[in-house]
Design a binder for these strands. Structure first.
Lengths: 241, 241
DNA sequence: CGTCACCTTGACGATGATCAAATTGTGTGG
DNA sequence: CCACACAATTTGATCATCGTCAAGGTGACG
């Protein structure tokens, strides 16, 4: 697989990509969520379309996604927008501005969700493994970004979409969800923005993949029906390069 | 300016983007190079086309570029290659694999150069400001990557090239070089790879900009002749989005 | 002086963007 | 609960940008 995710919480649930359920089998003991389980953290509920923070606002915390689905996005002075990633349980919001006085991107909820507010300075000083985790998460974000730069720079439209589906599936699987039944939380436009495609192209690719029997599309609900077939798509010749 | 550089050493020189010269006016006291000035570091000389490390090799150090010009690149299993960045004095090589047992990208010298080998664990434990610097450099790399994702995803060919020229100019200026006289150290193919363009398109854009009197191109030597004019190019409508 | 890598320029074509229009889905107020 | 407005999705037709292929030029180095 091309891309990786930095975090791997447990405790699956459904309908909101959260973790309210019970039958959680916690395997990876070093996730941030595990570390912080009985730390007195400020929690914050957000609902869809709400900004967690905006670029330029004073940075006062790092947020750990505990439930819900988020996007982070840059907006340039001249209005161009770019979604830099979709964040789910176990991911952090605000990592990119750790060394800055203000946030450097927007973080927006696509869903109802819950965030844990991490007091960075305090945790760094009082919890020995914390700094190490943060370093790993930062480096992991760089690797993930580079992976996407590779994908977006060298793959055609179909292959980008398939790469995205595989990435999402694997992240969901780590959270304990089915890797073949994907409930998208973003619009076609947002997906296209992230993949550097237009929303029409995203739609067309999905229709094309459905026509080939590789996936089943029903709005934002996507079922992966032929994983091997999708991997074949990735091998098909790219126009670029 | 769209992009930033995490490091800002002093002591300009010429002909190799290094720092052998003397008349250095050290302003920013918190650069890594400053911090490490009289630390007993292993130094390593490299020459053009030599690999500093390759993806998969055991990671044994972090490298601080002291002189020369480098590229870092990813290569996917199926042979697609992507240059993730060009690195010069004050930049670090290997940041992305800080938490890994092996390197996750290739680092290749485009020039003769000198690297300082940083023993990460030791410095982290013995030098108080070190960890903080590393965190800042990691976060800065993320911001830079996101900036390029925005540029590559939303700008046309001409604008990408101009953005690159401005970025390079500003980095060179911080090192004490002229921001209008650029000596490229990479081929058109490498530049195109980084910008997700073909080498022909890069050539064509440079020719076009020269024809408009905005720059003067002589092989890898580029002179910026009309900075304001180039900024105008950035305002010209992009096809994409 | 010849070879090789790199660069430049041209002609052509394909991928994906743009524009347009119709359909479906969603939330809100009556 | 329905009707309405609006957001999101789908599909089609057309076109521009940039990739591909080809050929010639330039420069470096043995």
């Amino acid at each position: 697989m091309l891309l990786e995710t930095a975090s791997r919480p447990a405790e699956p649930s459904f309908e909101t990509y959260s973790g309210a359920s019970s039958a959680g089998r916690a395997r990876e003991t070093h996730s941030l969520e595990q570390l912080l389980q009985n730390w007195p953290l400020q929690r914050r509920r957000v609902h869809a379309k709400q900004h967690v923070f905006r670029a330029g606002q004073p940075r006062h915390a790092l947020y750990l996604v505990h439930a819900g689905f988020f996007k982070t996005a840059l907006i340039s002075e001249d209005g161009r927008e770019k979604i830099t990633g979709f964040r789910m349980r176990g991911d952090l919001l605000g990592l990119d501005s750790l060394d800055m006085p203000t946030y450097t991107c927007d973080a927006i909820a696509l869903d109802t969700g819950e965030l844990w507010e991490l007091p960075y300075a305090q945790l760094r000083d009082e919890m020995p493994q914390f700094q190490e985790r943060i370093t790993a998460l930062l480096a992991g974000e760089i690797r993930r970004d580079w992976g996407w730069m590779l994908a977006l720079g060298t793959l055609g439209a179909d292959q980008r979409v398939v790469t995205f589906l595989f990435d999402l599936a694997s992240r969901l699987e780590r959270l304990g969800f089915s890797p073949s039944h994907l409930q998208l939380r973003m619009t076609r436009a947002e997906l296209g923005n992230f993949l550097s495609l237009t929303l029409e192209t995203v739609t067309r690719v999905l229709s094309r993949l459905q026509a080939r029997g590789l996936i089943a599309v029903a709005g934002r609900e996507i079922r992966i029906q032929n994983r091997a077939g999708l991997q074949t798509v990735l091998r098909e010749n790219t126009a670029c390069h």
